[in-house]
Nucleic acid binder design. Structure first.
Lengths: 125, 125
DNA sequence: GAATTATATTCCCATATGGGAATATGTCAA
DNA sequence: TTGACATATTCCCATATGGGAATATAATTC
């Protein structure tokens, strides 16, 4: 099998940095025409249209015609699947940080106990 | 330019469902040898090894040799970049849900006010 | 209708994919 | 050493990518 299409789900769609930028932009401005996005990102118009197409296919944005321009809007709910997935692991990196902090404190304590011992000349990280 | 490699960052690495499964598995069991993952996922061993390779390259897992098997472990901190990014939009889908709820309540109220009016025969969604 | 503006679509290509199949590497045991 | 086991690597291929370039479509104005 080949790599899953970018349009297959939200995870694949947001893997592309430019598409994340577009989502951020649309979050700030609520609504934007394609031209505005082109200006903001400095990408060629066809590239932007294609990215918007991907985002549309996974439901991350919606369009509405407005004169001769098309106005895009984010649908943030679609990001919940990603959010829910990563959130599963929140407490794990908290614990990890705790461990790191604990080690740092222990190290600091040892520093106080026996300070400035001439050693290998290699400083601990 | 072509699509960014799966190893280019965490976003690309976790776009693949099997790799997310591996992360979930390693979260449950703290440590697992490749063989155990192969059994759990029912994937061919080379496929698993390759997925682990991608996860290793982006720092999402670490290995340690243990006899003739290699034991993998998740490094959840690497998921923070993803978490931080989606979390930016948390309040937005909350608001969206509020709006949906508000609309539902408004609709319910209207139902009570003028119930069972003979209409078009088309029920509102 | 013709010209202009805004956006989408098509065709191109270098690059990567995930899994299949086969093989290489590494580690233990006898 | 030889063999058995665990894992990684290599080669293969159909499929998709993101952007470049050019073109098609659609709406507006003259």
């Amino acid at each position: 099998m080949a790599r899953a299409p970018t349009t297959s789900d939200v995870f694949n769609a947001i893997a592309e940095p430019r598409r994340r930028q577009i989502i951020e932009l649309l979050t700030q401005h609520k609504q934007l025409a394609v031209g505005a996005i082109v200006l903001a990102l400095g990408l060629p118009q066809p590239a932007v249209s294609k990215h918007l197409g991907v985002l549309r296919e996974v439901g991350l944005v919606t369009v509405s015609k407005q004169g001769q321009s098309r106005v895009y809007e984010v649908q943030h709910e679609q990001l919940r699947s990603v959010y829910d997935w990563v959130k599963m692991f929140e407490r794990h990196w908290d614990h990890q940080l705790d461990r790191i902090r604990a080690r740092a404190e222990k190290r600091a304590l040892e520093q106080k106990t026996q300070p400035d011992l001439p050693g290998t000349g290699v400083e601990p990280v």
